[in-house]
């Protein structure tokens, strides 16, 4: 479904990504792990099309984002949605929750996700259904972001992300700014939704343990280079890249 081929990107003279290549199948979840500055977030931005690549190719469902323009590009983009890292910054503070949630659906009036059939013209009803999917009740519809806790905001962000029933949901460090007791709730929710909608996840994190919990395969980034790509079950294998081993070592408990 997603093909990333020899993708390079640099800002001014510093190279952020060098010749990164990987593929993803529908329904699969791939974890991107690395330190800050390793280029994992840039990878995500390139896939959604928030940044332009310097070299290489990214194709989703056979469509090359770089070659599409205008309406075509907008149409193709709806298959990829993002759950952002910072739930405090990712919702417009001046919009009530329900408006944020259904914004993508307003932007693509032709898209009718299976779970929104029959209510496609009722904006509130759609928002209500989406909220229910992420475990929030209808009381939240009219609230503003500042009235919600971090975990609740992240749920709203997820509801917005799944609204268009995308093929690929990019989760950019979705739990790293949340409290420990909430992280498990959000990870479980993401896992359930993935099963329900057969979405693919690109799960970006610096925490090996959450990546292992969430993903089928793991890609390790170091300074813009993809150093290791393997099945999650092979995480402890001896053939792992030394850098991966270091990361594992840092995360296991003595």
């Amino acid at each position: 479904m997603l093909q990333v081929e020899k993708v390079s990107k640099s800002y001014r003279s510093t190279s952020v990504l060098t010749e990164v290549t990987f593929q993803m199948e529908q329904g699969e979840s791939l974890g991107l792990i690395g330190e800050s500055g390793s280029g994992k977030s840039t990878m995500a931005k390139l896939i959604v099309g928030l940044e332009h690549l310097d070299g290489g190719q990214i194709t989703l469902n056979g469509l090359d984002f770089q070659q599409l323009r205008g309406a075509e590009l907008r149409k193709a983009r709806r298959h990829v949605q993002v759950v952002f890292q910072d739930p405090w910054a990712s919702l417009n503070p001046k919009l009530p929750v329900w408006k944020s949630i259904i914004e993508p659906l307003e932007n693509y009036p032709d898209v009718v996700p299976s779970f929104l059939k029959g209510v496609r013209n009722d904006k509130r009803k759609m928002a209500e259904i989406l909220l229910e999917k992420v475990g929030l009740d209808r009381d939240f519809l009219e609230r503003y972001p500042h009235q919600l806790s971090g975990g609740q905001r992240q749920r709203v962000g997820i509801a917005r992300g799944i609204g268009l029933q995308p093929n690929l949901l990019i989760c950019d460090e979705p739990t790293s700014s949340l409290d420990v007791s909430i992280q498990a709730q959000i990870l479980n929710l993401l896992k359930e939704l993935k099963k329900e909608f057969n979405m693919s996840y690109l799960f970006i994190s610096h925490d090996m343990a959450s990546v292992q919990y969430m993903c089928d395969r793991i890609a390790v980034f170091k300074q813009g280079v993809l150093v290791d790509l393997f099945l999650s079950k092979d995480l402890f294998s001896d053939t792992r890249h030394p850098y991966t081993k270091m990361l594992v070592q840092a995360t296991v408990e003595r």
């Binding site: 907008r74 990829v80 993002v82 990712s90 919702l91 417009n92 944020s100 993508p104």
Partner: peptide, 26 residues
Amino acid sequence: EKEYVLAARVGGCTTWRIITRHLLPQ
């Protein structure tokens, strides 16, 4: 550069819509 504007872009908002709906109120 804030995430909610990025989110709006990812969600398919046109430039016009981002300006009037997300930036103008700020």
